[in-house]
Design a protein around this nucleic acid. Structure first.
Length: 271
DNA sequence: CGAGCAACCTGCATGC
DNA sequence: TGCATGCAGGTTGCTC
């Protein structure tokens, strides 16, 4: 599930339940995620207060005075606020149990996610230090895209999905943003005109901002993920619609693979 | 350095 | 019904 909007929705969902609250206990039922779950989650975190939460790209951060918990949801991860007494379901790998009798429960069938502790400035962490700008920040615009894309021969879609270029543009939103900008995904990144860089940056911002808005109203109490209705799905123009008619021109949407990822676009609307 | 691709896992849809 | 296959929203890290 998680692209940037889902991660931000998850952060907003859990934040009011845990900010300012103390962790009293943690339970790690499965420590084999993408990397082994940091032992500090058991040895250091209990007793510490979560001062606040934040997000960088698709990484969630739970801050304490002694360090930061980095959480990544991978491809199938989700968070829920639960009663710690509630029996865990399959793939409920980790509980962070709080003083006031609630728990943040991490669920991840494919275990592509991560739960890592860092005592230092989290932004200096190897996973975060090379990340590109946030798509909704003023640092991300057409001028930036133009500058970064010069000389690059990769397909434009792969380029905007590169987290070193800009964070948070996953497969769904890459497809959607390119459709809205009217640009074909296989366009060589380095050949994109300055004007089209403006259009693309603008559509990336719009599609992500809208998804956060919708996710925020639909998911409210927590999560982002499994079992939740496909809230953003109804507003998708191309993703998952290969072979079906384009909602704008009626032409048949083309589906192919770009960098091993399913890619859908309209030959007529996108040039 | 850039580009392409395998790999990490499980669940689910599809087709024989 | 059972089984094999392929695919899934992410990211790292390998090879060339």
């Amino acid at each position: 599930m998680p692209e940037l909007p889902e991660v931000e929705t998850s952060r907003r969902g859990i934040d009011p339940h845990i900010s300012g609250r103390r962790v009293v206990r943690t339970v790690v039922r499965q420590n084999r995620l993408r990397w082994p779950v940091s032992e500090q989650i058991t040895t250091v975190l209990p007793g510490l207060q979560i001062t606040h939460t934040s997000r960088r790209g698709k990484y969630l951060m739970l801050h304490t005075d002694a360090g930061t918990l980095l959480v990544h949801l991978g491809m199938s991860g989700s968070l829920r606020i639960v009663d710690p007494q509630e029996p865990p379901r399959v793939h409920d790998h980790i509980d962070l149990i709080f003083e006031h009798g609630i728990a943040v429960r991490y669920h991840d069938p494919r275990r592509f996610g991560a739960m890592l502790w860092t005592a230092d400035d989290p932004m200096q962490h190897a996973l975060l230090s090379h990340l590109g700008p946030e798509p909704l920040s003023i640092n991300f615009d057409g001028a930036y895209l133009y500058r970064r894309s010069r000389g690059r021969k990769v397909p434009l879609k792969s380029f905007i999905m590169d987290s070193q270029v800009v964070v948070g543009v996953g497969n769904i939103y890459a497809n959607e943003a390119l459709f809205l900008a009217g640009i074909r995904p296989l366009t060589e990144a380095g050949k994109l005109s300055r004007m089209r860089c403006d259009r693309l940056a603008e559509q990336i911002k719009l599609v992500i901002a809208r998804a956060i808005e919708v996710g925020g109203t639909t998911l409210r109490d927590f999560v982002g993920g499994d079992g939740q209705p496909g809230y953003f799905r109804q507003s998708l123009n191309v993703y998952g619609r290969g072979g079906q008619p384009c909602l704008v021109c009626g032409g048949t949407l083309t589906e192919l693979r770009v960098g091993q990822r399913s890619t859908v676009f309209c030959r007529r609307c996108q040039r």
